[in-house]
Write a protein that binds this DNA or RNA. Structure first.
Lengths: 207, 207
DNA sequence: TAGATTGTTAATCGATTAACAATC
DNA sequence: TAGATTGTTAATCGATTAACAATC
């Protein structure tokens, strides 16, 4: 408990646990168990207990976990017991979807600003009401505001350059939707979402 | 080489390798090495060679890999040496983005039909020109067309029910964008994309 | 040939699971 | 108390890496 080096693969499961707890809470449940969580998530109960044990003791023998208590602890561990401003680059269809996504607010994130390179879009509003700013001002704005998290929703051929600008301006966490492997300093965390990659993972198993 | 049970974690990296090869090819490169690929992807060269060795021998000692040859082989292995029809459920902002996504065609996928429950949307066209059909007809249409892959882009509270309908109609691979853990028979493959989960994975590492 | 890089083996490393004492 | 479930240990399992013979 309280190890200093938690495996990244364990960290990656915590948001899944948190999501499941929030789901149960919305269902007016108060107590759950590693067994129940595991059944829901397709994960062994032992693994859930082991994962949580890296961070402390959150349950009661014989009873299980108080949902609100564990939820609050996971939020603290993941640093989403606060709101994070996120800067969005790219105001195409995907950017629009992200800017108007209702799911961010309850989970610690707020899209603070949006940027695009298209003169026809700059100055207009996205669905949700956010003003589309000129990407030429991206670096200055990010620096001034101190934003640490960026979402890249631009075409593949612009993504690396946008990433470089964001990193140069102080961003240290990137969520990249462009279908390329971004190159970034090791001090910058990068997560990739590429639907075709996920679909190809699936088709491997299809006849 | 030619093992019958390839670890899923290995399968999950193949689309990344394929994407990198396509990128290099677009740059008019003809030969690459496990070292170069690894450097680009942040993966050790040994791991790339080991991963590929599950499927055969694709390189030449002293030279490396012919990009087109390895690319074609990975496409075959992943079964994207053909086009897959995909059925999209949900015509909100995210559905719009997916329906008009240019990146699918070159990577083996075609959004064949789109469905929504909103009477204001049914009968209208999505960006890209696809007709929005009534979700009430989803099961019959999927069965008739024989679609095997579904993308779920509906709100969380509708996702499980849509998944059930798709699975009941014969879909065996699901890409789920709704922020819940879907429950599906073990014969059905499910991939989840939840931006908040990815962002929370990132914030763990932020102060 | 000399240099380079593969494919593979064996060793290392790390993650998952099974089991159970502790205890609510 | 009896039953249930945690947190943790040790064993198992699996994945990654280092090293190198083979060979282009």
């Amino acid at each position: 408990m309280g190890d200093r080096q938690v495996p990244d693969i364990v960290v990656g499961r915590l948001p899944i646990y948190l999501r499941a707890l929030t789901f149960l809470k919305a269902d007016n449940r108060e107590i759950t168990s590693s067994q129940e969580l595991g059944d829901r998530l397709g994960i062994s109960s032992a693994q859930i207990r082991k994962d949580l044990s890296h961070f402390g003791e959150f349950g009661k023998q014989g009873t299980g976990y108080e949902i609100r208590y564990l939820e609050n602890n996971l939020k603290e561990i993941l640093h989403v017991d606060r709101m994070w401003d996120v800067v969005l680059v790219g105001a195409g269809d995907l950017g629009n979807a992200l800017a108007s996504y209702k799911g961010f607010a309850g989970r610690g994130f707020h899209v603070a600003a949006a940027f695009d390179a298209d003169p026809d879009k700059i100055g207009h509003e996205m669905p949700g009401g956010l003003l589309i700013e000129d990407v030429a001002n991206l670096e200055a704005r990010v620096q001034a505001a101190g934003w640490k998290i960026g979402i890249i929703a631009v075409p593949a051929d612009a993504a690396q350059s946008v990433a470089n600008t964001l990193v140069g301006a102080g961003v240290i966490a990137l969520l990249n939707y462009a279908p390329i492997s971004l190159i970034a300093p090791s001090s910058v965390r990068v997560e990739q979402i590429d639907p075709a990659v996920h679909l190809q993972h699936l088709t491997y198993y299809l006849g």
